[in-house]
Computed example of a mutant assay.
Amino acid sequence: MNFPSKLIEDAVNEISRLPGIGKKTALRLTLHLLKQPESSSQSLSHAIVKLRTEVRYCIICHNISDQEICSICSSHRRDKSLICIVEDIPDVLAIENTAQYNGLYHVLGGVISPIQGIGPDELKIDSLLHRIDTAAADDKVQEVILALSATMEGDTTSFFITRKLNERGIKVSTISRGIPIGGELEFTDEVTLGRSILTRISYNAE
């Protein structure tokens, strides 16, 4: 692809690094930015810099937050006896958009995958167990929902966590398999995902 300016070429190359964006789409976005007021580009760059330098992660659930503790964990309207375990942050957003769940979350940051060298120690499993073990009497966890993708890695992670939670007498359930096997949670439609949360079933590690 030939570019009339090295500046445009550099912008296209950087934008095309984003997932799902090819060189042609990056070029269209670059030319669009050139047609907008300079203040629009400055606002965009300022927002991106603030995102990278100021974003925080909740010290309790590891979700994205503006504060030390996210708005979900600090909310008095949430059912603190219920924790939904998800693989990553997009899964939290997907479940929240269903408006069918009122408990808390715990973001693992991935799933167990020996092929990729990801074991339990690389995930936020220890912090989940510490969170459950140190919860105040009024906030004691009664049930954990496993909302992991229906893949071999997701099932392996669910099995491992269930064994740990069974030792603590915690009820473990998993979202209904309305989600297709091999499907990713963040790409599931809201109706199916919401029904899966409402019709969750018990998960047995034996």
Results as ranks from 00 to 15, higher is better:
Lys35Tyr: 10
Asp10Tyr: 09
Ile21Trp: 03
Val141Ser: 01
Ser127Val: 09
Gly20Cys: 06
Thr199Ser: 14
Gln142Lys: 15
Val86Lys: 05
His106Asn: 08
His76Gly: 02
Lys164Cys: 05
Lys23Gln: 15
Leu29His: 01
Leu29Tyr: 07
Arg177Ser: 06
Phe3Ile: 00
Glu122Val: 09
Ala99Met: 12
Gln142Glu: 15
His62Phe: 15
Pro120Glu: 09
Ile95His: 03
Ile89Cys: 03
Ser71Leu: 10
Ser202Leu: 11
Asp10Gln: 13
Leu29Trp: 08
Arg195Ala: 08
Ile64Gln: 01
Gln100Tyr: 03
Ile161Asp: 07
Val86Gly: 04
Gly183Asn: 13
Asn2Asp: 11
Glu167Pro: 02
Asp66Ser: 13
Asn13Phe: 11
Asp138Gly: 11
Glu143Arg: 09
Cys73Ser: 03
His106Ala: 06
Pro4Trp: 06
Pro19Glu: 06
Pro37Leu: 04
Leu108Pro: 00
Gly103His: 00
Ser176Gly: 08
Glu143Ser: 11
Leu104Pro: 01
Gly183Pro: 02
Arg195Ser: 14
Gly169Tyr: 03
Asp138Met: 09
Val12Trp: 01
Ala136Thr: 03
Ala135Glu: 05
His130Asp: 09
Ile59Arg: 15
Tyr101Met: 01
Lys24Leu: 12
Thr53Asn: 12
Thr156Val: 07
Asp189His: 03
Leu7Ala: 13
Pro180Ile: 11
Arg195Glu: 15
Ser127Tyr: 06
Pro19Thr: 14
Lys24Gly: 04
Arg77Ala: 13
Leu193Glu: 04
Leu18Glu: 13
Leu93Gln: 11
Pro120Val: 06
His106Tyr: 02
Val49Ser: 13
Lys164Pro: 00
Ser41Glu: 07
Ile201His: 15
Asp10Trp: 04
Ile112Tyr: 04
Thr25Asn: 07
Leu128Val: 05
Leu185Cys: 00
Glu14Cys: 13
Ser40Tyr: 10
Phe160Gly: 01
Gly119Asp: 09
Thr151Trp: 02
Gly119Pro: 00
Cys61Glu: 09
Ser16Val: 09
Arg131His: 08
Lys24His: 11
Leu44Thr: 07
Arg78Ser: 00
Ala11Cys: 06
Tyr105Val: 02
Ala136Cys: 01
Lys6Gln: 07
Asp121Glu: 13
Leu129Pro: 07
Val144Glu: 07
Ile72Tyr: 13
Lys80Cys: 04
Leu123Val: 10
Thr30Asp: 09
Ile83Arg: 00
Leu7Ile: 11
Glu186Ser: 14
Ala205Leu: 05
His76Ala: 08
Lys124Pro: 03
Gln116Ile: 01
Ile201Ser: 10
